[in-house]
């Protein structure tokens, strides 16, 4: 009988191992996304300030992180730090550091864009109502900023989740790596396992990312009405 390769998924702990790999992916992503969102909001607010020195510093940071491929950043942190400063970080910690550096820069720029797109008269009418600066931000500016930010922020989050597949290259065993291991182990017994394993990985990424875009669509619709 022709070998279908699908049974590889159900051999031993293979499927559970894939899920464990997914958990590593999700764990790194969720942590990085949360931290970069918080830091990104702060960075975005700093970027709207008029101080020229702060502007130059944040601009340089943003451009540096944007120009640099994420893989190079990963190597810089994982191998570079060890070589230069004898700091030995685990792959997972390095990955989180890189994703936070990257996510903060991107999120900061999105927040800056959203904040500056709020018309001046929105700030002024809040003030004219006698709201304090804090109240003005809480009730008038930030709710509008979040609404403008949401589509791009969700896009960034899914990009971050997908980019975690790069961390295979610094030795973190996440979902893609587990898949490769399974394929390698069964290369002789079922050569067509790769299709099935990568198919499952595709599906796993999908079930992580799809609910996020559904949520964002829901919120967009809700806020439009």
């Amino acid at each position: 009988m022709q070998d279908m390769g699908i049974e590889v998924l159900f051999q031993g702990r293979n499927f559970v191992r894939l899920l464990e790999g997914l958990w590593v992916t999700v764990r790194i992503s969720v942590f990085s996304v949360i931290v970069s969102t918080l830091l990104g909001i702060i960075l975005g607010m700093i970027m709207t300030m008029k101080n020229p020195l702060l502007r130059i510093i944040t601009r340089c940071y943003l451009e540096f992180v944007r120009i640099m491929p994420q893989l190079v950043l990963l190597f810089l942190v994982y191998f570079g730090l060890t070589k230069m400063f004898r700091i030995n970080l685990s792959g997972e910690i390095s990955a989180i550091i890189v994703f936070v550096i990257w996510g903060t820069a991107e999120m900061g720029d999105l927040v800056r864009g959203a904040l500056t797109s709020i018309p001046v008269h929105q700030y002024e009418s809040g003030k004219a109502l006698g709201l304090t600066t804090v109240q003005n931000y809480c009730y008038v500016i930030i709710p509008q900023t979040i609404r403008r930010l949401l589509p791009q922020a969700i896009n960034l989050v899914t990009r971050m989740i997908k980019t975690t597949s790069l961390i295979v290259l610094i030795g973190v065993v996440e979902v893609v790596k587990v898949g490769q291991q399974i394929i390698e182990a069964s290369r002789l017994t079922s050569p067509s396992a790769a299709v099935w394993v990568y198919g499952v990985i595709f599906f796993l990424y999908f079930i992580v990312c799809y609910p996020i875009s559904i949520l964002s669509k829901r919120l967009e619709v809700k806020w439009r009405n």
């Binding site: 018309p119 008269h121 929105q122 002024e124 009418s125 004219a128 509008q144 806020w223």
Partner: peptide, 11 residues
């Protein structure tokens, strides 16, 4: 104060 631009909060 009422401004020229419609300044209601859209959200």
């Amino acid at each position: 104060m009422v401004f020229q631009s419609y300044d209601l909060f859209p959200h």
